[in-house]
Write a protein that binds this DNA or RNA. Sequence first.
DNA 1: ATAACATATGTGTAATATGATATACGTATT
DNA 2: AATACGTATATCATATTACACATATGTTAT
Lengths: 104, 104
Amino acid sequence: MEVSDALLNEAAKIYKVLSNSGRIKILYFLENNEADVSSIVEEVNLPQPLVSRQLAMLHQYQLVSRIKKGKHVYYKLDDPHILEMVNAMLGHVSHEIKHEPHHY
Amino acid sequence: MEVSDALLNEAAKIYKVLSNSGRIKILYFLENNEADVSSIVEEVNLPQPLVSRQLAMLHQYQLVSRIKKGKHVYYKLDDPHILEMVNAMLGHVSHEIKHEPHHY
DNA sequence: ATAACATATGTGTAATATGATATACGTATT
DNA sequence: AATACGTATATCATATTACACATATGTTAT
């Protein structure tokens, strides 16, 4: 396959976004729920400022969209496709873990 | 979906591995070729020690396997499935880039 | 044994990411 | 306007990552 550097860099950036379990957790929660920040905080059990920052990051890379209603800001998945990818990865690692743990 | 923390952490780790365009480049090159380190160095145009490091990392996470023949060490994809995921991601970002660049 | 080559590792340093804490901002309510 | 609440941002310490450069290790040939 022939891939441009720009594309590779962009992909790498998104992988970086996904390289944090808190952010993945948030994406998963948003799979089924459009949710405001407080609900997300409660669900993922991380301090609110941290959640806000991670949401900002997810939003910057267009993985989630947001809509403001009064004091609340509701986030939802912007691109369900991304979760399919995460699912594929989870399948991958779950096999790996079963068959043979990493040899660190 | 219900996902264990261990799984999420493992997935996050693999994403971290993929969050570097040099490493992705290497994986891509190995899609078609089993190759020794020198060939990879030549292909990806990065200093040899760096390539060795990244190969070590890819190997640690079982993304590539290696076999030693004389002075040469040949690497190949250990799990083609991972490249499917990378392909999916590249497709994703290429759409994104076309439709609307990120608003950094 | 030495030389030449392929690969890996050690080390230092700069850049970046992380998460905790404090605080600011915006909106609704009284 | 004062308060309360939801959310975002700033700041800081710490940890992690990245890469360059030097050097070590292992292998083959002379």
